[in-house]
Design a protein around this nucleic acid. Structure first.
Lengths: 192, 192
DNA sequence: TAGCTCAACTAACAATCGTTAGTTTTGGCA
DNA sequence: TGCCAAAACTAACGATTGTTAGTTGAGCTA
């Protein structure tokens, strides 16, 4: 009933889910990390499923909110894509565990939450695709297959946490500067 | 004892692991899809762990073999990267289930197999990094942070299966042509 | 045809799972 | 200080897990 305690449980769960996967974390594991017994968790949450749903949908809604903000703005395609990249970096840094959990364990949501997640995901991809299409129409974006670009771009952004978790060697500032460069402007020098 | 039957079991397992994740697939599930009882599986395999290890390490070794072949060849950086991209596409098409399983469930390997997997993964990344470094030294590759490029490149290639599974709309030939283009030559026109 | 081997089977095990019911402890407020 | 609610506890449930032991039947070989 104490909302702070509930949040502690969810945060700890997100950490463990990232580490071992939803199904490999038992309620007794989770309780142990909070130094209580499994049954005590149920004073604060209603089920293991609820924990997963909160974690996943919270992050998914954060992404949705941001792209809904950017999408209608009067910016160039490059500027919109830059803003999206920076948002992914920011969320990755702030919600590493939850993001990992969303990417790996959304499939274990029960039907209703899973549908909601899929709805948010599809809406996000659709807006992203529309931004790119606009860029192609304006001649701002290279003539490559749209779906392929949507895929490679979003895949990279979505899994930023994997690599960032193990390489704190790269400074955040370098990331913010060079990731957009790598994604937007390519790898091979044009004159080579 | 019949090796064909063993392979059938492993293939079916790979399909189910991709679909639901290693821990969410029970031996009774797996047996059911083969129209036998769970206990009968143990005439052919020694444990659930063995199935996972075979699936994961088989694919990991295939990637290792290919990069060991490409690495010392007398090719430009662009050509080597192209060859690597084409190999990822080929393996994605041929071993979709196994690849998904490797990416999602390697963490559930027991200690020995997990260490072996990590060893292969690190060796692969190291060779890939070396190829890029060579490209930078020769002035063939843009001056962006090496780790960031390694990451975004490999992430995209590794998760090709996710996107390819749901979009058969994109032709294989388009993929083979436009994915290298997107990864190597960037998105934004240079003169915009 | 007799015998052997492989691959299926039934039955059961100990362990662990998420969750519930009912009880005790704790800490802040009257 | 006594009360009350919040949050911990113990104990247990039914279900499911991976796996083993022992058995049965089918098909090939001698």
């Amino acid at each position: 009933m104490n909302p702070n305690r509930k949040q502690e449980i969810i945060n700890t769960a997100a950490f463990l889910f990232k580490e071992k996967g939803f199904n490999a974390v038992s309620m007794r594991d989770l309780a142990g990390h909070l130094h209580i017994k499994a049954a005590s968790l149920y004073n604060h949450i209603s089920s293991k499923q609820e924990i997963l749903a909160v974690i996943v949908l919270q992050i998914a809604e954060e992404f949705t909110a941001h792209i809904n903000l950017i999408y209608p703005e009067d910016l160039s395609t490059t500027e919109k894509l830059e803003a999206i990249i920076q948002n992914h970096i920011a969320i990755t840094l702030k919600y590493t565990n939850e993001l990992a959990c969303m990417n790996n364990d959304w499939m274990h949501l029960e039907a209703n939450s899973k549908n909601e997640y899929r709805r948010l995901l599809n809406a996000y991809e659709a807006k992203f695709r529309a931004i790119l299409q606009e860029g192609k129409d304006k001649g701002e974006v290279e003539d490559v297959d749209l779906e392929i670009v949507v895929f490679s771009f979003l895949t990279t952004l979505r899994t930023l946490y994997v690599w960032y978790a193990k390489k704190s060697s790269v400074e955040v500032e370098t990331l913010k500067k060079d990731l957009p460069k790598a994604l937007l402007h390519g790898l091979i020098l044009k004159d080579s």
